[in-house]
Design a protein around this nucleic acid. Sequence first.
DNA 1: GCGGTATTGAACTAATCGGTTCTTTAAAGT
DNA 2: ACTTTAAAGAACCGATTAGTTCAATACCGC
Lengths: 166, 166
Amino acid sequence: MFWKHGFADASLQELEKATGVNKSGLYSEFSDKEELFLESLRFYLDRLPQRELLMVEPLGWDNIEQFLKLGPRNTEGQKGCFAISSMRELAILPPAAIEMLERGRVQLKRLIARNIEAEKPKADVNDLAGMVLTFFAGLSVERNLKSSRANAGRKVDNLMQVLRSF
Amino acid sequence: MFWKHGFADASLQELEKATGVNKSGLYSEFSDKEELFLESLRFYLDRLPQRELLMVEPLGWDNIEQFLKLGPRNTEGQKGCFAISSMRELAILPPAAIEMLERGRVQLKRLIARNIEAEKPKADVNDLAGMVLTFFAGLSVERNLKSSRANAGRKVDNLMQVLRSF
DNA sequence: GCGGTATTGAACTAATCGGTTCTTTAAAGT
DNA sequence: ACTTTAAAGAACCGATTAGTTCAATACCGC
């Protein structure tokens, strides 16, 4: 629900229906809506399926490609990446959530960098990892638009062609 | 206010304060909050300063570079691109707003493509334009994070180096 | 200075928001 | 079967939401 509607627009009523847990139950387990959001985000980041894509041996461009292709996918109707989407609401998110997002980002970048490093490219590994990450963010955002959903695969192919040339 | 807080989180009270116009005045001019948002978005898209960056003669890579560097800038404290940020809320935005976003995107892509075309690259112009646009979306999102705000310029430099090689 | 027109301020509506409390019901342990 | 514990339901809270109404006030053309 947070993924789809964001923090502000996900009402307690909808959260009850989505979780199947009564409001009483929710509040006996979480102190408030912010903590519920925080734990949802933690849950998402912890078992981020994208992460495993980047740990397949041997590390390399193929992992990056899989990550970009399957990363911002639509899981159960959700679009894009929950973490990326949440960055829209940074202004109203609890500080702990922001930290979590920043930390998750750093981790992801490190994973990407390790895959790039395995290919021993000529260009700077950190720069390339940053590029991949920015591209990933862009793809995640575009996932929401129907007009650019179709050619997402082609976009990744194009980028990969560039990356592999390094 | 919509730019900063998004549609859901921008309250009428804040809108009054931000516009300096009374609620009565707001509602005498706009039918509801949705129309006010719609017109705000139209206003933004119409005088999108980024657009002019892409029309400087002669067309070419330099325009693209300027666009990527100054495009997702912070205008009056606002971060990233209003249009990109709004894509987070597509689920609750009025259909007219979604259409507007899609149309603005197409226009922007066309402008980018024209600049790329002027350079007569070997690669497909449309593919390259899509790449620039995705990268732009990524940069806009990352603008919200303090950790990745600093090296945005470097990122653009890296991408431009790639693009110019085509 | 006068009259018409915007603009404002404040009171008000109905609905919804996040959050609390308490009673009832269901489940589990022994 | 009885007791303890967990979960559910529902009523309720004050605050806030988008939106309306109307009287008071400011402004402007004449």
